[in-house]
Nucleic acid binder design. Sequence first.
RNA 1: GGUCCGUUCGUCUAAUGGUUAGGACUCAAGAUUUUCAUUCUUGCAAUAGGGGUUCGAUUCCCCUACGGACUACCA
Length: 533
Amino acid sequence: MNPPTLEKRETVKTKVKTIGTMGAEVRVRFAPSPTGPLHIGGVRTALYNYLFAKGGGGRFILRIEDTDSQRFVPGAEEYIIEALSWCGILPDEGVEGGKVVESPSSKHPYAPYRQSLRGDIYSRYAQQLVEAGSAYYAFDSAEELEKLRKEAQERGEGFLYNYQNRESLSNSLSMPKNEVERRLKESRDWVIRFKVSPNRKVELYDLIRGEILIDSNTIDDKVIWKSSDSLPTYHLANVVDDVEMKITHVIRGEEWLPSLALHYLLYEALGWEEFRPQFAHLPLLLKPDGKGKLSKRDGERLGFPVFPLEWREGDKEVSRGFREDGYYPEAFINNLALLGWNPGGENELFTLQELVESFSIDRIVHSGAKFNVDKAKWFNQEYLRKRDIGALALELSPILKENGVDIELSKVEEAIALVGDRIAFVDQIWKESDYLFKAPSQLDPKLKSKVWNDNSSRQLKELSNIISQIENFTPPNIEEEIKNYIKENSLPMGQVMNTIRLMLVGEGKGISVAQIIYFLGKEESLSRLSKSL
RNA sequence: GGUCCGUUCGUCUAAUGGUUAGGACUCAAGAUUUUCAUUCUUGCAAUAGGGGUUCGAUUCCCCUACGGACUACCA
């Protein structure tokens, strides 16, 4: 069971492909913990798992890792499912009708997919490990351990519960049998620790990073099962479920890399080396400015969402979501996919299907990526431009309603066509086209002082006359008539045009004057022009 | 402190021993324009440092620096 010796990424790719075509179906899982909303790093992990599975004709499984009863947050599980669904990342297994599946069926053969419902399975294996001498009962109190950690820290060392001190701590290795039995019966305060054997060089293999060699003396005897809630910790639950659920590839965040050696040892102790999946540890998503990994607080601090959907904690705390901020899921996913992976060409725009087709683990980047909100906006702009005008009109309707505009859809579509390439988000359409639906309530004083003079009133009156008499009322004609007037009277073009704009728009923005007049129609245009008089 | 992972423009990245080190976002300038935008063109901008190996290193090796993760009866 030695890890393969592979130097080049090229070779790794071949290996991954081979496994996919050797008959064994690719099965990957995304295994979040329902302790709060999924953040974009988690979404990216789910996405990469999904892309890898779909690219190899495999299955993508959602498993809920709720073995920490203390940190469970109501609503988090539903949030995770809804967020993935918004992104178009639909699990093949583990969730049905928006709910995590709790009993086995042909489609969901390894149910339940919620770990808190699988307690018996883990305790059986935990027991097995103890009986085999690979694990032991430990009774040390939190206070005792805390004290030891503190002391170690004061000496400038780290505390490890391992071969060096396990004989002198309170556990089944150091106590007489009857004392152990008494304690097991009397309290719910004990745990099972994995017994790491000393002086071993554990050879790990990561699909992204290659070979890693770990000295077993640096690993500590992790708690794998706790009697307080009769549930395992991540390490055991993970290994057991990945094997039970026939997972072939574990694609997870880099924060797990330090415990990979422990996991290898666990597979070994359970006699499961041949079922051990392949591992790929993803680089982390980092804060856009300073240092460290992206966190919930960064979104608030920097003014952009870090969650796919809005999240409410009680009634007070609200965290923004990309969906609520007006991002399209396609744009969001596209952006995320390229944060830590890229297919090598110069194209940056990919549909989910195209991502599936081009994704490969060997092109995952090795270093962490800082999230950049400008780029995220750019992606959204690209997707908005590709969007059908009819769809945009529907998306804009609620905003129009909010602003008291009641107008037929065809007119809305016409307006969107005029301003469509100026915006990145639907709500910007309103900001860029409000003057097409509503007369300005006030005139920008800055523009006014720049363009308004003693002749302006007279000019507007004369222009109103001209406009009212245009028979072939089209933008080019309107423009020509206005320009003729300016020419005949030898007036400065910019000044006159901007005076008209001032009256129509109220400020120095917007599409061409002729286009505006055409869109508004004679009556409304003339009404706006006459307001100054 | 210890263990592990990483390091190419400000940011995301391409180039896996031979390129004027490429693209995208941002920014700047110019062109277009009646305004604001858009669009187009151009520009600014990087191989962390030091040693090797080699005819030749962004690329392979070592050291240093820096960054990150982990170091819970959390995942």
